[in-house]
């Protein structure tokens, strides 16, 4: 098992599809609306080496806690990913994989991590809530800044065209 901590750098180039990784450090949730907002208004965080999580969590705002936070279907973000990678994002986390176009966009610079769909309780147990950006987008669509400790992911698409979802 490989251990990685965000922000990520050129170590992502060493990863190969199928590698199991324990991921730690700060990540940012973003679904459709957050992608559109960032494209329009810019990043509310430093995108260099950052990791995006395709997720609409259940948050207990009274206790400032992540209750449940499994991945959403990444394919919805197929056409919203290139500008993220161009800005320096080095990792995506989601479920179900992404298009051949994204596979090419990842080449030489970033990877796609698959996290098990439905595993919302396991994800939440690895998470500490650090903040919220663009909170006007609401609970599911806002950008939640989360500190991970050892989230068990697998490299679904590597930076060299390797893709476990391709068949």
């Amino acid at each position: 098992m490989i251990r990685l901590t965000t922000p990520l750098g050129d170590e992502v180039l060493d990863l190969r599809a199928g590698d199991r990784v324990l991921l730690s450090g700060t990540i940012y949730t973003a679904r459709d609306e957050a992608h559109l907002k960032i494209r329009e208004k810019g990043f509310p965080f430093d995108p260099k080496g950052a990791v995006i999580y395709h997720c609409g969590p259940v948050i207990d705002e009274a206790q400032n806690k992540v209750v449940a936070a499994g991945p959403t279907t990444s394919a919805r973000m197929n056409n919203l990913t290139k500008f993220m990678l161009d800005a320096g994002i080095r990792g995506l986390i989601g479920k179900g994989g992404m298009s051949a176009k994204v596979r090419e966009e990842l080449r030489g610079r970033a990877v796609y991590f698959a996290f098990t769909g439905g595993c919302a309780a396991l994800a939440a147990s690895c998470m500490e809530l650090a903040g919220c950006h663009y909170s006007e987008l609401g609970m599911a669509e806002g950008i939640w800044e989360i500190i991970l400790t050892d989230l068990p992911v697998v490299v679904g698409i590597d930076a060299h065209g390797g893709d476990l979802f391709e068949r």
Partner: peptide, 9 residues
């Protein structure tokens, strides 16, 4: 922990 298995309830 008595929490939902999946966030899509």
């Amino acid at each position: 922990k008595n929490i939902p298995i999946c966030q899509d309830t």
